[in-house]
Nucleic acid binder design. Sequence first.
DNA 1: CGGACGTGTGAGAATGGTTCTCATGACCAC
DNA 2: GTGGTCATGAGAACCATTCTCACACGTCCG
Lengths: 145, 145
Amino acid sequence: MSAPEVPARRQTRQRTAVLALLDELDGFRTAQELHALLRERGDAVGLATVYRALQALVDDGLVDVLRSEVGEAAYRRCSPVHHHHLVCRSCGRTVEVADPPVERWAARVAAEHGFADVQHQLEVFGTCRPCAAAQREDRLSGRGR
Amino acid sequence: MSAPEVPARRQTRQRTAVLALLDELDGFRTAQELHALLRERGDAVGLATVYRALQALVDDGLVDVLRSEVGEAAYRRCSPVHHHHLVCRSCGRTVEVADPPVERWAARVAAEHGFADVQHQLEVFGTCRPCAAAQREDRLSGRGR
DNA sequence: CGGACGTGTGAGAATGGTTCTCATGACCAC
DNA sequence: GTGGTCATGAGAACCATTCTCACACGTCCG
């Protein structure tokens, strides 16, 4: 009933590092990958802290989270407006794509069935041109099987 | 380049039981839930077997799989034609909904960005009428906070 | 500036869903 | 029936994620 209660998020080296790293990457990365990258560049951060930082960023709407097919969570720095993703299933490169008419469609279909408070989740997966080319080569050379 | 190689899937009591159970349920259920249900009704099936049966069914296109927000896999008996789901986030009741124009939109957007071999994944979540009503009551009675 | 308070951190343990292992059992063709 | 193969099941292994708890650090107040 009172203030919205954002509990004074502290500015620490670790959280800054996680956000900065996400800023310079352009695809979805798992928490484990981000942790490894930070380690490599000498920025010692605990794995638990990476998870905590990512959760905080998701709560603040600065980062989008996606579940891979094997159930891992992948994170990406995103614009705060509603959008969807076109993701390369091979290299992870991601393009944000604008709101299709699906928005309206989803709302209408949900209403027809008596569903309220509707959200939707739409991701498009494909193989980007460079990866498709690489795979074609692989098939031709190495392994006939 | 030879036979499609469906390696002679065997018909066993356990696989039949899993499929029969899915047939009579109408929402997405996790493997653990299905396993527990089978146990309850005296149909002793190992957990690993439930997972294997579900994977086989998914491979055969008889069952759809969805990842919950916490990363668990949930399964549901589905029609073999391409479709999407409208899922109640409270009780899990699911409605299959027909192909929206998204199909075309996804293909076009992907092509514009040079992505090939496109798939998409669209789910709509909401609260079905009975659940919405129940929640409204909860809020009024119990907890003013 | 300095110290107190409370939050953030990190190593490792705990958790929990899913997969693997391997000895045993069931299915199917002959 | 008999044999070969695939399926089963209990438990271990696996692995991403979360929890625990002692300690460090940011923030606030004097």
